[in-house]
Computed example of a mutant assay.
Amino acid sequence: MLNIGCHLSVSKGYKAMGEEALKIGANTFQFFTRNPRGSKAKEIDPKDVEALLQIIKENKFAIILAHAPYTLNACSADEHTREFAINVMEDDLKRMEYLPNSLYNFHPGSHVKQGAQVGIGYIVNMLNTVLKPEQTTTVLLETMSGKGTEVGRTFEELKQILDGVTLSEKMGVCLDTCHIYDAGYDIVNDLDGVVDEFDRIIGLDKLYAIHLNDSKNPFESHKDRHEKIGEGSIGKDVIIKVINHPKLRHLPFFLETPNELSGYAQEIKILRQAYIE
């Protein structure tokens, strides 16, 4: 079965996200833990969360994915910004225990001209500070497009972070198709080669999820602008190859295309029809 969903808003509540997922033919979804451009988090209603967990159980959802806010930058040159990142992630991981055994994804951040190695050191420090042996959440580093001074533009940079984390069993990677294509990994002409390179450098056992997005920009543009499936430089045929790839097809796929719910429903329908059972 194709495990696929999209990004939903938690503003209406946890149960509402489960209901919206069902309406559009999804069997998983992604959501922001808090305001994506700020720091405020919606107060958790345990009964609302329990209603979502019941929907997940009854409908046999695949694992769900939470996304940290974009304001989280663990490798900023500013100490207060780094402290903010630690505090937010620490709080998020406590809140994630209401949804046990889920995934939590974050952008590694931008080193702001300090150099990638300095940035990697700060990210490792944050993860070694906030990760706890008892947590059930797996934290994912997202592959990045390489705009500006982003860390995580190469598999090697992600590997360095993973290698520095003490509780490595709590860590994994979320691969974004738009980001890696914009970063210079040619999934259009050599998907097998890119998958093999990921396996060689990081290991496919560390790949937990895929953000499924087309790209508004050409190959190796380092821009990070998502496009609807089939309307960008990656193309529908390649996206279909990704969901059917023998080494990827078992993973959960999350759409982050510029869509309303009706658009997501249509993309999910198209991809389900193209998935080879």
Rank of each mutant, 00 (worst) to 15 (best):
A66F: 07
I239N: 05
L140S: 09
H80N: 15
H250A: 13
K57A: 15
F253N: 03
L212K: 01
E169Q: 15
G164P: 12
D78L: 13
F219N: 10
K47N: 00
G25Y: 06
G263H: 08
T177Y: 02
S233I: 06
Q135C: 04
D186Y: 11
I202Q: 01
N105P: 04
S221H: 05
G230P: 07
I240K: 10
T138A: 10
K159Y: 13
I234K: 06
I187H: 01
N259T: 06
N59T: 11
E58T: 12
G121Y: 07
I120D: 11
L212T: 05
G25M: 05
I64A: 07
G25S: 13
R153F: 01
F31I: 00
P246V: 09
F29M: 04
V173Q: 09
F155D: 10
A68F: 09
K236V: 00
S11H: 09
Q30Y: 05
M96K: 04
L8W: 01
I202C: 09
K47I: 03
M1W: 11
M96C: 15
C6P: 00
I239M: 10
K132T: 12
D237I: 13
K60W: 08
I44Q: 01
G193R: 03
A183K: 02
Y122N: 09
R34C: 11
I161F: 07
L158V: 05
K247H: 12
D199Y: 01
I64R: 03
G25C: 08
D182N: 15
R200Q: 14
D45W: 01
D186P: 08
T136W: 00
K113T: 14
I201E: 03
E256C: 01
F198Q: 11
G263M: 14
D176M: 06
N244Y: 14
P100A: 02
I276P: 02
G25F: 02
S9L: 07
I276M: 08
N59W: 13
S76F: 07
S9A: 13
P36L: 07
I243Q: 04
T81R: 05
S39D: 12
I180D: 01
Y264C: 06
N27V: 06
L175H: 09
I270F: 07
Y181G: 05
A274K: 01
I276T: 14
A41Q: 12
L191G: 08
N3M: 13
F31P: 08
H107I: 04
Q114E: 08
L8R: 07
